[in-house]
């Protein structure tokens, strides 16, 4: 029977910690950029301007329908060849992660906004609200509530997706687990520790998200 030995891993705690830090940074960064990209894309899709909507749709489908792994490799290796400038692997990682999650966020935002009954916009208009006031005070607050579960879900997936940046040598948690494995020849322990660290961050976050969701449900 396999004898687990986590002791040899302790000396590498700083590698795990640094890897975890980078994973958090890439997740938080790509979520922040992704929200901006998602809002712009969602706005373009709902603008009613056909060519703009088409471009937004094209971007979304390219990033939703190709593997993130391929996108990372493509942005790091192929894109620099096409434009003639080399891209730092960290920039390529952040750019790809943001564009990837932005495509999904756009769809979540769009779905949330469209799910709000037309009568809500009419009622806002009927008391003289401008389209902007109607969007920010009536439609968005209701849409946000409906978007929240999907948004959290996508963000949790995003946290785990960052593990793929290790293929372009960004030293995230997955990369560090591989390094530790290389040093110790203890793959099961190395990757178990990696998994536990992912859980340690995500589990509290999903619980907090549940709490927020319950608080928002008071008006239902």
């Amino acid at each position: 029977m396999y004898k687990w030995n986590f002791d040899v891993l302790w000396q590498y705690w700083d590698l795990f910690l640094y890897g975890l830090w980078l994973t958090v940074v890439y997740t938080a960064g790509s979520i922040a950029f992704g929200v901006v990209i998602g809002l712009i894309t969602c706005g373009a899709r709902l603008s009613g301007w056909k060519s703009l909507s088409f471009i937004a749709r094209l971007y979304q489908e390219i990033f939703r329908c190709t593997p993130l792994l391929v996108q990372l490799l493509w942005f790091y290796y192929a894109f620099p060849l096409l434009v003639g400038v080399s891209i730092d692997n960290r920039v390529a990682a952040m750019l790809t992660l943001s564009l990837y999650v932005g495509a999904f966020y756009a769809e979540i935002f769009r779905g949330g906004i469209l799910s709000i009954d037309r009568g809500q916009r009419e009622a806002a208009a009927a008391i003289g609200m401008s389209p902007m006031q109607s969007m920010t005070r009536i439609v968005m607050p209701q849409a946000l509530k409906r978007m929240l579960p999907s948004f959290i879900n996508q963000s949790v997936i995003q946290f785990k997706n960052t593990s793929l940046v290790s293929v372009i040598s960004v030293a995230d948690l997955a990369y560090m687990a591989a390094v530790v494995n290389g040093q110790t020849y203890r793959p099961l322990e190395s990757y178990t520790v990696m998994a536990l660290l992912y859980i340690a961050v995500l589990f509290p976050l999903t619980q907090i998200a549940d709490l927020i969701e319950r608080r928002l449900r008071v008006s239902d």
């Binding site: 009954d117 009568g119 809500q120 009419e122 009622a123 806002a124 009927a126 009536i138 209701q142 008006s219």
Partner: peptide
């Protein structure tokens, strides 16, 4: 002012 068939109150 206008009042609608389906009320359209702001549920939030």
């Amino acid at each position: 002012g206008m009042v609608f068939q389906h009320f359209n109150l702001f549920p939030h």
